[in-house]
C-alpha cells in the first residue's frame, strides 16, 4: 500500500504543481483588481465588443476547422480500416510525419507558400484568384486544419481498428447493407473516437494565437491573441487571467456537451 502511494507521488506532484496551482493562480489573478481586492471586472470584460468579437470569430473558426477535419478524417479512417495493416500504418505514418517538425516552422512554411511569390500564391494567381489570402480568415483556417488534422485522424483510426471484423460480418449476416453497417454499427462504435478527435482539434484551435499571428498577418485578433497580448506586452495579467477563465468555461461547456453525447452512445450500446 505504502509502496503504491510512493509510486503515485511523482504524478501527484506533477498534477498539483503544473495543473492545480496554475489554475488557482489564474483564478487568483482573474478575480483580483490590479490594486488588490475582489472584482468581476476582468471576467465581465469579455462582453466588451473588442473582446467579444475575437471570441466569436475564434468560436466560429474552430467549429468550422473541427468540422472540416472530421469530414476529411472520417472517410480516411474508414478506408484505412479496410486496407491491410501494413498499408494503413504506412498511410497513418505519412499523416503523422509533419508532426515531427516543429509546429511553428510548419506554420512559417505555409506563410512562405501563401505569401507573395510563394508557390501556392503563384499557382492561385495562375488559376485566376486575385490577391493574397494571408491576413484573411481563410488563411488562418487553412493553417488550423493543416496543423490539427492529425489529432483527428489518430483517435478515429484507433477507434476504427478496434472494431472486430466479426461484428461487421454479424451485421451483414443479419441483413444489413453497407450503408446500414456504416451508420448503425461503425458510427456508434467509433463515437468515443469522434468525441476525443473533436476535443483534440476544437480546444487548440479555439485557443491558438500562433496560427493567427503568422497567417493572419497580425491583422486579425483571435481571443488567444488578446490573452497573449495581455500577458506579454500589455503586462495586464489580471485581465489576461480573467479572459482565460472565460475561455476555459467555454471549453468545459463544450466538453461537457460532447461527453453527454458520448455516454448516451454507450447507453445505446448497452
Amino acid at each position: 500500500m505504502n509502496k503504491r502511494k510512493l509510486l503515485s507521488l511523482p504524478y501527484l506532484v506533477w498534477m498539483i504543481g503544473f495543473t492545480v496551482i496554475p489554475l488557482l493562480m489564474i483564478l487568483w489573478y482573474g478575480f483580483q483588481k490590479k490594486t488588490g481586492g475582489f472584482t468581476l471586472e476582468h471576467v465581465l470584460a469579455i462582453a466588451r465588443p473588442e473582446h467579444l468579437k475575437p471570441l466569436l470569430i475564434s468560436l466560429l473558426l474552430s467549429v468550422i476547422c473541427t468540422a472540416i477535419c472530421l469530414v476529411i478524417a472520417y472517410p480516411l479512417a474508414l478506408i484505412l480500416r479496410k486496407a491491410n495493416l501494413k498499408k494503413s500504418s504506412f498511410v497513418i505514418f505519412i499523416f503523422i510525419l509533419p508532426m515531427w517538425m516543429n509546429f511553428l516552422l510548419r506554420t512559417y512554411a505555409w506563410l512562405n507558400l501563401l505569401d507573395d511569390g510563394g508557390l501556392v500564391y503563384v499557382l492561385m494567381q495562375k488559376m485566376g484568384f486575385k490577391g493574397n489570402i494571408v491576413g484573411t480568415y481563410s488563411a488562418i483556417l487553412l493553417g488550423m486544419v493543416y496543423n490539427y488534422l492529425p489529432f483527428m485522424v489518430l483517435p478515429l483510426y484507433n477507434a476504427m481498428t478496434k472494431i472486430d471484423d466479426f461484428t461487421l460480418n454479424a451485421a451483414r449476416d443479419l441483413g444489413a447493407n453497407e450503408r446500414q453497417v456504416n451508420l448503425h454499427v461503425i458510427l456508434p462504435l467509433t463515437f468515443p473516437g469522434i468525441v476525443s478527435g473533436i476535443t483534440m482539434v476544437f480546444v487548440p484551435s479555439l485557443t491558438t494565437f500562433v496560427v493567427s499571428d503568422l497567417l493572419g498577418g497580425r491583422k486579425i485578433f483571435l481571443i488567444g491573441n488578446i490573452i497573449e497580448q495581455e500577458f506579454s506586452t500589455a503586462s495586464n495579467w489580471n485581465l489576461g487571467a480573467g479572459l482565460s477563465f472565460v475561455l476555459m468555461i467555454f471549453i468545459l461547456v463544450s466538453m461537457a456537451i460532447l461527453n453527454h453525447y458520448d455516454t448516451l452512445g454507450e447507453e445505446e450500446e448497452a
Partner: peptide, 16 residues
C-alpha cells in the same frame, strides 16, 4: 505608468 499603458492597449484592441 500602468494606467496610461493600459489605455493604449484598450485603444489598440479596437483598431484590429
Amino acid at each position: 505608468g500602468q494606467d496610461a499603458e493600459d489605455m493604449y492597449y484598450e485603444y489598440w484592441k479596437k483598431v484590429k
